[in-house]
Simulated assay, not measured.
Amino acid sequence: MRIGQLSQRTGVSVRAIRHYDAFGLLGPVREANRYRSFMDSDVDRVQLIQLLLGVGFSLAEIRAHAPCWRNGTSSVLDPVPDAELRAFLTRKLAQLDQHIEALATVRSRLQERLDAHVSSEHSSVEHANHDITNAPVLKGAEG
């Protein structure tokens, strides 16, 4: 598949895909006309690169440890990583745990604000309804 097709299938810009390729994260075959030709597995690889970038990996880290993600997926890790890889993965897990904790805190605070806002709106509506039904004009019309 050509780079434009890979871009469409992954939602990643052609420019970013070229950057990943120049950085050595992709390995397209060059056709006789010099066009890059990507494989279906590159869709998974580009999506994995995006995922890893999104959670704080750098391109250098992804490239340095790319062999532990065979076939572009993170589901197949090398069975026995070396000490350097283990240390790297341990550091990244700790960073991810901190990020998850921070996200949970932000989520909790946003939920509290939303709940307070909804509660305030609900209270205002009840108060307004009470004022309307107890208005002198409506009180005389009830009976």
Rank of each mutant, 00 (worst) to 15 (best):
L6K: 06
A22H: 12
L114R: 15
H65C: 04
D40K: 02
P81H: 05
N134R: 13
R70V: 12
R9E: 06
R18C: 06
G143L: 13
L138T: 08
S7I: 05
D44I: 08
L93C: 08
M39H: 14
Q8F: 02
D78Y: 07
V118Y: 07
A104E: 10
T90W: 03
D44R: 14
G56L: 05
R9F: 06
S13E: 01
R91Y: 02
A22C: 07
L25I: 06
S119I: 00
T10L: 07
L25K: 08
R107C: 05
V106A: 13
T10M: 09
P81R: 01
I3D: 04
S120G: 10
A102T: 10
R63V: 05
G140I: 03
H65T: 03
K92H: 09
V14G: 08
P81K: 03
L93M: 11
S123P: 01
L138Y: 07
T90R: 15
L103E: 11
E126L: 10
N129P: 00
A135H: 14
F88S: 01
D78Q: 08
R36G: 08
L96G: 02
F88R: 01
G27N: 15
V125L: 14
V106Y: 01
H65F: 14
A94P: 00
E142N: 10
V80T: 14
Q5M: 04
E121R: 12
I17N: 04
V12E: 04
H99T: 13
E61T: 07
V14A: 04
S41N: 06
L77M: 13
V29T: 15
N33L: 02
H99F: 03
A94L: 10
L53D: 00
R63M: 03
